[in-house]
């Protein structure tokens, strides 16, 4: 059974239909991509999956559990993490504090145990810090742990967003245009890093990306969107030669 199952998902804003009966699935341990021209509804779909938008119909399930319409924090707690298209870090806080935010839903101590400085609370804080440091190390920015997140280079900010999402120990991670704004060298590093996420931690990856080279290199399966509809779904070779995909990207001859 697939890790992520999307069935007949529909979304509209007022009279504008954004997503038409979208169905697809992502297998556990896969790296899959979502492509399509601008405005095709890719980010809207991510927002439905993560609970930021409430779909008008259809269903979404993660590991067999329905998550349709749940609030974002519940969905994260159930094992689905995301990054944002335009990096959304807590810029005024430290890199470490940013990474620690991922552990919030995996920890439980509240105000009272903090005031009383309970030993269990201290231990939990240490564990949160250690986990966050491990993920900063994983993405390769642990040396910046105590710097302000907003002061990092653009590439490192993208890495931090990844570390923060991974720190919530997800089963599936959604990456919204992770290569946007990166140079060729940084893109190579990113391909390597995304492979490591899957190979070393077993986290399933679904990404939205415009860089076709990167998508073709990484993905086992590609889902293609145009005007809110799924127009193709398959391995890179099949999608690359699909006439409907070529039409969506290049237009028809007439």
């Amino acid at each position: 059974m697939a890790l992520l199952e999307v069935r007949d998902l529909r979304l509209s804003f007022g009279g504008l239909k954004v997503l038409h009966d979208i169905s697809f699935s992502v297998e556990k341990g896969a790296i899959n991509s979502l492509i399509g021209p601008n405005g095709a509804g890719k980010t809207s779909l991510f927002n439905c999956l993560t609970g930021f938008y409430k779909p008008k119909g259809g269903s979404i399930s993660l590991g067999g559990r329905p998550i349709t319409g749940l609030p974002p924090h519940r969905i994260t707690a159930l094992g689905l993490a995301r990054t944002f298209q335009n990096i959304r870090l807590f810029k005024e806080m430290t890199v470490l504090e940013n990474a620690m935010s991922g552990q919030h839903c995996r920890s439980r101590h509240g105000i009272m145990s903090a005031i009383l400085h309970l030993p269990a609370q201290r231990r939990e804080e240490e564990a949160i810090r250690a986990t966050a440091m491990r993920w900063l190390d994983f993405v390769g920015i642990e040396q910046h742990a105590h710097r302000r997140a907003g002061g990092l280079s653009y590439g490192d900010q993208r890495r931090l967003e990844l570390a923060r999402a991974l720190a919530s120990t997800p089963e599936l991670i959604l990456l919204d245009e992770p290569a946007a704004g990166l140079n060729e060298r940084e893109k190579l590093d990113l391909v390597h890093l995304i492979r490591r996420i899957r190979d070393e931690t077993g986290v399933t990856v679904l990404l939205i990306e415009h860089d076709m080279g990167l998508v073709m290199q990484l993905s086992e399966k590609i889902v293609v969107f145009d005007y809110g509809q799924k127009i193709a779904d398959g391995p890179p070779e099949a999608v690359r030669t699909d006439p409907r995909v070529i039409e969506a990207y290049l237009g028809t001859e007439e």
Partner: peptide
């Protein structure tokens, strides 16, 4: 987290 970016905070599980 909520003060600096409510949506990012919700997205990370708060």
């Amino acid at each position: 987290y909520v003060r600096y970016d409510e949506d990012a905070a919700a997205g990370i599980g708060i």
